[in-house]
Simulated assay, not measured.
Amino acid sequence: MQKNDDVHWIGSTQIYMNELRKEFNVSSTSPIRTATVLISGIGYYELYVNGQSVDPSRKLDPGWTTYEKRTLMVSYDLTPMIKGGMNAVGVKLGNGWYSQEQYVPPSASEPNYGPPRLMFALSIVFVSSETMSVVSDQTWKGRQGSIVHDSVYNGEIVDSRNDRVDWAKVGFNDSFSLWVTPEIMQSPINVAANGQLSLQDMPPIRAGVDALQFEIDNPLNLENSYLSKEDLAGIQGGNLHDGGVLKPISVSTPVLGVHTFDMGQNMVGWCRFHFHGPRGLGIYIRHAEVLAQPVDSTKQSYGGIYTENLRGATQTDSYILRGDPNGEIYEPRFTVHGFRYISVYGSPVGLSVNDVECPVVHSQTTVKGHFASSNPIINQIQHNVQWGQLGNSMSLPTDW
C-alpha cells in the first residue's frame, strides 16, 4: 500500500470505541466501474456496508501477528454493494490480540498494545475514469456499542440493550447513544524497526459451513470401499461432514438455575444461544473441556464443569437481555473458546438442546484426502488428530 497522508488510524483513548460509522455521497453521473477497500481493524474487525456484513462467515480478522513488525490489512471488492447516492459504512472493533490483557507475565512479555483502532481506505473508480476516496479520518463517528468488553481468553460481556439494528445504514439516527469524533491514533507499526503494513494472504478464519471444504466425498459414501459403514460407525465425537455446526447431545441441570450442555466433541469456537427473559437480566456462560470429577470423600459428582486447567482464562461470556418477547439470539463476535461442555447460569426459563448450536471455528481449510482402517482404535486416533489440527489452526498454529 502506498503511503497516503489522508488515511489515519482512528479510535479512542477515552472510551471503548468499538463501533465506527460514516455516510458518504457517491456521484450518479457515471456508473461505478470498481469499488475496492483496504481495511485493517486491530485487534479484530467486522465490516458492514449499507447495513450488510461484507463477509458474514469471516471471523477474528485480521490474522494474529507481532503488530509492530507486521500488521495485516484485507482487501474487499465492494462494487456490488456501493451505489450512486448516499452510502454508509460501519466497522465493529474488538481487542483481539492487540490487548495487554492477553499478555500476562511471566508467561509472556507485555507489549504496549491497545486500545483497538481502524485503518480504512475505499477507492471508487467510475466508468468516466473519475475517482473518489473514502478514508478513515475525523469525519467518522464512533461509540461504545453493546460489547462492553471482549477478550480472546476471557470472553465477552454484552449488553444487548445497546444494540442498534440500523447503525450501519444510511439515515441512521440514535437518540439514546452519544456518537463522538474519533481520535487520530498512533500506527501500530514501528517504522523505525522496518515494520510494515502487509496484505493478508493467509486463509481467513471462518465459522461454520464455510470453514471446511472437501476435495473428496464422505468416505462413508465411497463406492467399492473395502470398509463398510459398520467399520467406521464406532468413532466417537463430531462428524466433520455435518456442516461445521455441532448440536448438543445432552443437557443436564446439576444444580438449580444451571444448564450444562455436552457437545459430544472437544471443539474450538463458540455457541449461538436462543434466550428468553426480561429486559436487563444477565445470563452467564462458562466453557470447559471436562466435567468435574467425583469428590474423594463421597465419591459423588454434582455434574459441574472443571475449569482449574484453564490457568486463569475465564472462558466466560456474559449476556444482558434486551427483553425481546420473541426471544433473542446471542453469538459472540470477538472471542473464541476451547470446550466440550457449556454451563449456562441464570436463564429464567428452561433450556433444551434446541436452544444451542455451536459453529466450529478455524482457518479456512480444504481436506485433500482421507484415511480409515478396519481398526477402531486407529480410526478414533485419526478422528482426534483431525479435530485437534483444525482447532489449533487460527491464522497460525496455536495450542488451544
Rank of each mutant, 00 (worst) to 15 (best):
T36K: 15
S146W: 01
L240W: 10
W97N: 05
V170T: 15
L178S: 15
D137R: 12
R143C: 10
N239R: 10
M81F: 08
L38Q: 13
F120G: 04
Q196A: 15
V148Q: 04
M86S: 09
Y98G: 02
Y48D: 11
G94I: 11
Q2M: 08
Y341T: 08
D262N: 14
G369C: 11
N154S: 10
M17Y: 03
S107Q: 10
A292N: 14
T65I: 01
G142M: 02
G195N: 14
F176T: 15
P376M: 08
H370E: 07
L396Y: 09
N190K: 09
T66P: 00
N50M: 11
Q364N: 04
I329D: 07
V91W: 09
L351F: 01
D159W: 01
M73Q: 13
H276V: 03
K247H: 12
F172I: 08
F120D: 07
N194W: 08
T181G: 03
N375D: 15
V125E: 13
A292C: 11
D6E: 13
L321W: 01
A313W: 00
T398Q: 04
S198W: 05
E110I: 08
G388W: 03
G303M: 05
V295N: 14
W387S: 13
I285E: 12
P359C: 01
T34I: 00
R70K: 15
L178G: 05
L390K: 05
G142S: 02
L78Q: 05
E357P: 02
G269R: 01
V134P: 03
R206D: 04
N392I: 03
I305W: 05
T398S: 02
T398Y: 00
A211H: 08
S374W: 02
P204C: 04
L72I: 03
K92T: 08
M17N: 04
P348A: 10
F371Y: 15
F334W: 07
W387T: 12
L20I: 07
V91M: 10
H149Y: 08
V7W: 07
L118V: 07
D159G: 04
P204Q: 07
I205P: 00
V268L: 03
K22D: 00
A211Q: 07
Y98V: 01
H241L: 13
M394T: 01
E183A: 15
G155F: 08
D201F: 01
V74P: 00
P376V: 10
L199C: 02
K299F: 09
E289I: 14
V170A: 10
S363K: 03
Q100N: 05
F339E: 11
G90V: 06
S318H: 13
Q293R: 13
T335V: 11
P325I: 11
Y330T: 10
T13E: 12
G171W: 01
D61C: 04
L390A: 05
G350Y: 01
P348C: 07
I283T: 06
S30P: 05
H149L: 07
K299L: 14
V258G: 00
L256K: 14
Y284C: 02
F176E: 14
L20K: 00
G303S: 06
K169H: 07
S225H: 03
C358R: 02
A193L: 13
S160F: 00
N309I: 12
S128I: 06
E110W: 00
